[in-house]
C-alpha cells in the first residue's frame, strides 16, 4: 500500500511536470510567433535582415495597396454600373403590359360593345 502510494505520487508529479513543461514551451513559441508577426510580415524579413532602411519600403507597400484598392474600386464601379443598367432594363420590362392586360382590354371592349348591341337589339324588337 505504502509503495503503491509512493509510486502513485511520483507519477502524479511527473505528469504535472510534463504538462507544465509543454505549456511553457507552447507559450514561448506562440509569444515568439506573435512578436515575429508584429515586427515584420514574413515577406519582408529578408530585407530587414539585410539591414536596408525601413521607411521607403513601407511607403512603397502603401502605394501598392493603394493601387490595388483603386483597381478594385474601378472594377466594382464598372460592375455596379452594369447591374444598374440591367435593373433599369428589368424595370422597363416589368412595366411593359403583358398578355393579361391586352386580353383584359379586348375583353372590356367586346363586353361593353356587346351590352350596347344588346340594348340596340332590344329596342329594335320592341319598336315595330
Amino acid at each position: 500500500m505504502g509503495a503503491f502510494s509512493l509510486l502513485n505520487r511520483f507519477s502524479l508529479w511527473f505528469a504535472a511536470g510534463l504538462i507544465l513543461g509543454a505549456a511553457l514551451f507552447a507559450l514561448k513559441a506562440s509569444a515568439q510567433d506573435f512578436q515575429l508577426s508584429r515586427s515584420s510580415p514574413p515577406g519582408r524579413e529578408a530585407g530587414q535582415l539585410a539591414g536596408q532602411n525601413d521607411k521607403p519600403n513601407r511607403f512603397e507597400q502603401c502605394d501598392q495597396i493603394m493601387a490595388q484598392l483603386q483597381q478594385q474600386k474601378h472594377l466594382m464601379t464598372r460592375e455596379l454600373a452594369q447591374i444598374k443598367r440591367e435593373l433599369v432594363a428589368l424595370r422597363e420590362h416589368l412595366s411593359r403590359p403583358g398578355m393579361q392586360e391586352i386580353f383584359a382590354g379586348i375583353g372590356y371592349i367586346l363586353g361593353l360593345v356587346g351590352i350596347a348591341f344588346y340594348l340596340h337589339c332590344r329596342k329594335l324588337r320592341k319598336g315595330p
Binding site: I102, G105, I106, I109, L110, V113, G114, A116, F117, H120, C121, K123, L124
Partner: peptide
C-alpha cells in the same frame, strides 16, 4: 346599331 360589331373590332385594334 348595326355598326357596333365593326366599332368593337376597330376599337380593339386601336387599343392594341
Amino acid at each position: 346599331g348595326d355598326d357596333l360589331p365593326k366599332v368593337a373590332v376597330v376599337t380593339s385594334s386601336f387599343f392594341v
